[in-house]
């Protein structure tokens, strides 16, 4: 088992290991095996295409949580110039599970806010696995209100298992922090574009996700509760997570069909982590186009559209 590959990717991992092995042998020997490597590489592409052509909702959820998946700061690095990270909610602390700051998107000043997971164990713990506490949401709110004052569009990246369910989070008003963001974001006088880049975990995701346009990466997920949580409540067994994932319709394709997601951004073959610069470049292109469309509207039109859209949810 290669830990950098998911269960259903193991055949791909094996093939790639074989190619790597051949390469090493090739370097040492006189025999020309580049044809063989070429053949295997083509086979690998075909195999990856085949594996990824028909992922179940639960497999997509695995890709969304892939340990190599790019996080907010990876996108910032690849698509935002001149970025200054800003810290703290001015009341209690700086929550590392949400990052934010000012930068430029193709020259235009923007406020960027996103959930942030960690890569190594220590970093994962410091980032609390991307599960914000109230101070994270309050930092986000502070930055969003600042964006409104300085007429900067807001770009958010959603990638969280959910808001942190802890004693301290409850003591400091997790519910209120989320609720307040939802209310304020509905009327902020600046364009807001949100992109689900990984896991969209419930209220903890929505608290930075009330927007004018909702984008979603091909293998992102967005749901009201995690598949495991849903399964343990409705099926009385977390083992039924794959059934829950399917029933809830958490994938980009399904949510686009239902009219809940505006644009699906295709991922490189094998998922965003297989080619981060390519992923970032195509998302950047989408963000620029979407922002152009939103900035063509008057402020009144923008806000009216945002409100009408919120009011239309759930009414067939």
């Amino acid at each position: 088992m290669n830990p950098n590959y998911l269960d259903f990717e193991q055949p791909i991992a094996e093939l790639e290991a074989k190619i790597e092995e051949l390469r090493l042998v090739g370097e040492d020997s006189e025999i020309n095996i580049s044809d063989e490597i070429e053949r295997l590489q083509q086979k690998n592409v075909a195999l990856t295409e085949q594996v990824f052509s028909d992922l179940s909702a639960w497999q997509v959820a695995q890709v969304a949580r892939h340990p190599q998946r790019p996080y907010t700061l990876d996108y910032v690095k690849h698509m935002i110039e001149d970025f200054d990270e800003l810290h703290g909610d001015r009341h209690f602390a700086d929550d590392a599970a949400i990052v934010g700051g000012i930068g430029r998107l193709e020259g235009q000043p923007v406020m960027v806010i996103g959930h942030q997971k960690g890569r190594e164990v220590k970093e994962k713990v410091r980032r609390n696995f991307g599960m914000p506490r109230p101070e994270g949401y309050r930092k986000a709110l502070r930055l969003m209100e600042m964006a409104e004052r300085f007429k900067m569009p807001i770009i958010t990246f959603i990638d969280t298992p959910g808001a942190y369910p802890g004693i301290d989070a409850e003591e400091r008003g997790q519910s209120e922090a989320i609720a307040y963001n939802l209310a304020v974001m509905s009327r902020l006088k600046t364009p807001i574009i949100s992109t689900v880049v990984g896991e969209g975990g419930s209220g903890g995701a929505l608290a930075i996700g009330v927007c004018d346009q909702l984008l979603m990466l091909q293998y992102g997920t967005y749901s009201v509760i995690s598949p495991e949580g849903c399964a343990s409540i409705l099926w009385k067994s977390a083992e039924r997570a794959s059934d829950a994932a399917k029933a809830m319709g958490i994938t980009s394709g399904r949510l686009h069909e239902l009219g809940l997601v505006d644009k699906v951004v295709p991922e490189p073959l094998g998922g965003a982590h297989r080619d981060v610069p390519l992923m970032a470049a195509s998302l950047k292109q989408q963000l620029i186009e979407t922002l152009d469309q939103l900035q063509a509207l008057s402020m009144d039109e923008l806000l009216q559209k945002r409100y009408d859209r919120l009011m239309s949810y759930g009414i067939a």
């Binding site: 609720a179 009201v224 958490i250 919120l310």
Partner: peptide
């Protein structure tokens, strides 16, 4: 599912 989340 997500329709209920959006009610928030």
């Amino acid at each position: 599912a997500l329709f209920s989340l959006m009610q928030m």
